[in-house]
Write a protein that binds this DNA or RNA. Structure first.
Lengths: 152, 152
DNA sequence: AGAAAACCAACAAAAATAGTCGGGATTAAA
DNA sequence: TTTAATCCCGACTATTTTTGTTGGTTTTCT
């Protein structure tokens, strides 16, 4: 029950773009440096996000990436599903798969995975990039020097 | 965001034991056959469940496994956490790990993983083996011939 | 032209997953 | 007392997924 770096890096990259929303394009190198992620690896992830219609790109010098929609219109769920595939704790609850349960016990445990799937989607779809942006603004106001408010 | 077979097989095995609760021990082979899971692989999983105090074992001929507590006292969360480790979408929200976020963005995305973790645990801890047992009884009553009610 | 960037495809190391294999220890029953 | 059923244990292995790396090509601004 863990997200891979794909999802986590992807969310951070999109969050980074959200913080620079309205300022034109952001080159991948800047995102990678700020977020401390391998640039080439992030390239692969953002390619997926582009193909999913979540970011646009501008090629050439002074090019870069930018959000394809406004921050309130992009949810964490959109990002995670693009990068990690549909959220399905078990294959039998994935939308595109038609798989028969082999026995009644399997059918019943399926109820669990269905509930879990719905709950996860609900949480992830309830948080938009705008929400994160607001959190960041609040955090900075409370603690001027970039303050690591949420350390464990 | 997918559970491995460890968690899913484990839940099915425990469910199987719940359906036979009060009937003494159940040999692993029976569980493996009914649930169509490799016996040797399931052995490894049930060893973990035993060490976690969720099942007891009886060695020797006519031995087998049985639930260590009553079905209402065992939740799906107990089983999943035993087999897959603590539910933590990101390491920074795992209880045993003290990891500093490296920048403010990472700290803010952490809020997502924390919310997600809580939601997942809530769902999984709200379902007990007894709940599944009741579902099974209902399903059988409605459809006498072992009826695959929950097919997609 | 030159530099900055996106874009692309193949490769590869490391880790996790999903088992398999072979035997040893324990116990009930014949 | 042997035998069969069963749990117990450790080592091995194949496959897949993750997490990148390498080395380019193309596009566009200055």
């Amino acid at each position: 029950m863990k997200l891979s770096t794909k999802g986590r890096y992807g969310v951070r990259a999109m969050f980074d773009l959200a913080l620079h929303y309205g300022e034109g394009t952001t080159p991948l190198r800047s995102i990678a440096e700020r977020q401390n992620i391998s640039e080439h690896y992030l390239e692969q992830l953002i390619a997926v996000l582009r193909k999913s219609g979540l970011v646009n790109s501008v090629r050439g010098a002074h090019g870069g990436y930018l959000l394809a929609k406004e921050p309130p219109e992009i949810t964490i769920g959109d990002i995670i599903r693009a990068l990690e595939g549909p959220i399905a704790p078990s294959d039998c609850v994935a939308e595109d798969v038609e798989k028969d349960c082999e026995n009644i016990e399997e059918c019943i445990t399926r109820l669990i995975w269905k509930q879990l799937q719905e709950s996860i989607n609900e949480v992830l779809d309830s948080i938009s990039l705008e929400d994160l942006r607001q959190e960041a603004i609040n955090a900075k106001q409370k603690d001027g020097h970039h303050g690591y408010l949420y350390h464990i």
